[in-house]
Amino acid sequence: MRTQLIGKIEFDQVRLSADLDRSLEVTYAEPYDEFACGRPWKSVMLLAPGGGEGGVLADFDPRRPSAFTKAGEHLPYIQEIIRDNFAMEHVTFARLVALTDGVLVPHCDYVEMSTDVERQRIAHRVHIVLSTSESAKFNETDSVYRMREGEIWAIDVTRPHSAGVIDNTRRVHLLVDLAYVDDAADLFTFDADLSGNFPQANICDRPTLSDAEREGILSMSSVIDEENFMQVMGLVVRKHYRNDGGPDFVWRSMNEIAERSGNSTIVKMVSDLYRHTNIVRIEGAHRK
């Protein structure tokens, strides 16, 4: 499914707040540290094939039937949200993801899915926004937008995307991965709007990046090194959330910073990170 707003939930705020408090008691993984600039992107599996523990989708055998994990059983209202809104026979994974004061490298998901079974069982991703603020933003290709609390979004994670929170807000989303079916409407038990709805009101109005600002970003070529590489990447991503720098701003800027640096190691780090996050997961392409 392409990225679109497909529905909205009116939460029981008392029960949701109780579950979000309880969610602080469960053990989160930090599975994609190479994607994170700033504080880590954290996740905890609530439902997975076999109901066991793991940090990333590749830890599980998608041929096994899915069941709630111990963490999922600990959060009864969030478990109810899943049961009430999705056809459970088609739900492969569900997890909470939390992000605070950090941004993610623009990346594509599912590139590590190598078999037909995996691709069939993990075909669609849906975000339900449990807790957020105006400082929490999402990016797909060159668009930056906000997902509002209670909204249900289908996300085309095969396209380059990232997320960011630029203050100390704890943004919590429920991510649900769904199997392929002939009619996507069969995945949901609510009346999902699959018309491609992408409200203009959700799109962030970003001023155009000035020439001086662009040169300031590129001037980091004089200080970038192996130790501060991800900090520089984070500053570029954060700028993308605030200003419109044109097509493919983040990777275009990082490539130019690397070339200007004259450091072949930095050039290779940018190339390796792009390939790892957007084309194929590569061992050894993590941050230095």
Rank of each mutant, 00 (worst) to 15 (best):
R2K: 13
Q4E: 08
G7W: 04
F11M: 08
R15D: 11
S17R: 13
S17E: 13
D21P: 03
R22I: 03
R22P: 06
S23L: 03
E25W: 03
T27A: 12
A29T: 13
P31E: 07
F35M: 15
G38W: 06
W41V: 10
W41H: 12
S43P: 00
V44I: 12
M45K: 00
M45T: 12
L47T: 00
A48T: 12
G50V: 00
G52Y: 00
E53M: 00
G55V: 00
D59M: 07
F60T: 08
D61I: 07
P62N: 02
R63S: 13
S66M: 00
S66W: 04
A67C: 00
A67E: 14
A67K: 00
A71M: 07
G72S: 04
E73F: 01
L75E: 08
Y77G: 07
Y77F: 02
N85I: 04
N85L: 04
F86R: 06
A87K: 00
A87H: 00
M88E: 11
M88H: 08
H90T: 09
H90E: 00
T92Q: 01
F93A: 01
F93G: 02
R95K: 14
L99C: 08
T100Q: 09
T100A: 02
G102R: 06
G102T: 09
V105G: 04
P106D: 01
Y110P: 03
T115M: 02
D116C: 05
A123L: 00
H124M: 07
H124C: 11
R125G: 12
S131Y: 08
S131P: 11
T132P: 07
F138L: 14
F138S: 15
R146L: 10
R146M: 12
G150E: 12
G150R: 06
I152D: 05
I152W: 06
I152N: 09
I155F: 09
I155G: 02
H161D: 02
S162T: 14
G164D: 08
G164K: 01
D167F: 04
R170P: 06
L174D: 05
L174A: 05
D177G: 06
L178G: 06
L178S: 03
D183K: 06
F188M: 06
F188A: 02
F190I: 04
A192N: 02
L194W: 04
S195Y: 09
F198R: 11
F198Q: 03
Q200W: 08
S210A: 03
S210G: 13
E213R: 15
R214A: 14
E215P: 09
S222F: 10
I224L: 01
E226R: 14
E227A: 14
M230S: 13
M230W: 11
Q231P: 04
G234E: 03
L235A: 15
V236W: 05
N243S: 15
N243W: 12
G245A: 12
G246N: 06
P247G: 12
P247C: 11
D248N: 15
V250T: 12
V250L: 10
S253I: 10
M254L: 15
N255C: 15
E256S: 13
E256V: 15
I257G: 04
I257V: 14
A258Y: 03
S261P: 11
V267Y: 07
K268A: 15
L273W: 08
R275N: 15
H276I: 07
H276A: 09
N278K: 10
I279H: 06
V280S: 13
R281C: 11
G284D: 10
R287N: 15
